[in-house]
Write a protein that binds this DNA or RNA. Structure first.
Lengths: 113, 113
DNA sequence: TTGACACATTCCTTTATGGGTATATGATTT
DNA sequence: AAATCATATACCCATAAAGGAATGTGTCAA
């Protein structure tokens, strides 16, 4: 089997730095493709392809405006990532010694049995 | 060029659901490989390979204990993901998006007529 | 209608993935 | 020393990525 498609979910879509950049730009407001092309310094087809991925996982939405296509951010799918991360938030704030202590305690409990 | 290596950063490493599962399991405490093999229902080589990726991006650390290798979580690299997400946290809570979406939809309907 | 513009899609190439299977390495027990 | 256990690595396969280049599609202007 190969790696999961980039369009599988937000996790995969966002693993590509260029696509993160695009989202960052769209976070400031709606933009047509050519704007993104210039701002990213990428070729237009690559931008369109990245946008396709982002569309498929619904991280962006499009709206036709004349011959332009206005892309806007839809942050909702990012929530799934955030939700997964939530259980780790505490941990990196805690000192490692603290983690060690916790783990040591767990081990002692096991050994007592 | 091909897709970025899974070992490039936490974003790429964590895009694979199996690796997320492994981290979730290790969040509960240190574990030897065979534990993970059983819990995941995967073949041992695949687990070892996933662990290799996680090691390379420093999401896990290893410790030798007899003939076992105890893996433990190191949540630190997840922080970069969380940091990137932070600027979006506000957004999916806000109602503006919903309103904007509605307005955009209305506009498209108009255009269709 | 023709041409220019904005964007999307297709084809090509290189590279890496993840699972399967077999085998290597290293520590422990007998 | 040999057998065994725990884990890592190597090899094969099918798949798909991302960038480059070329071309297709739809819209507006002259």
């Amino acid at each position: 089997m190969a790696r999961a498609a980039t369009t599988t979910d937000a996790f995969n879509a966002v693993a590509e730095p260029r696509r993160r950049q695009i989202l960052d730009l769209l976070a400031q407001g709606e933009r047509p493709v050519n704007d993104l092309v210039e701002l990213l310094g990428l070729a237009q087809p690559q931008v369109s392809k990245h946008l396709r991925v982002l569309r498929e996982v619904e991280l962006v939405q499009v709206r036709d405006e004349g011959r332009q296509r206005m892309y806007r951010l839809n942050p909702e799918p990012l929530r799934s990532i955030h939700d997964w991360l939530r259980k780790y938030e505490q941990m990196w704030a805690a000192r490692f010694d603290a983690l060690d202590t916790v783990l040591a305690d767990l081990k002692e409990e096991e050994d007592d049995e």
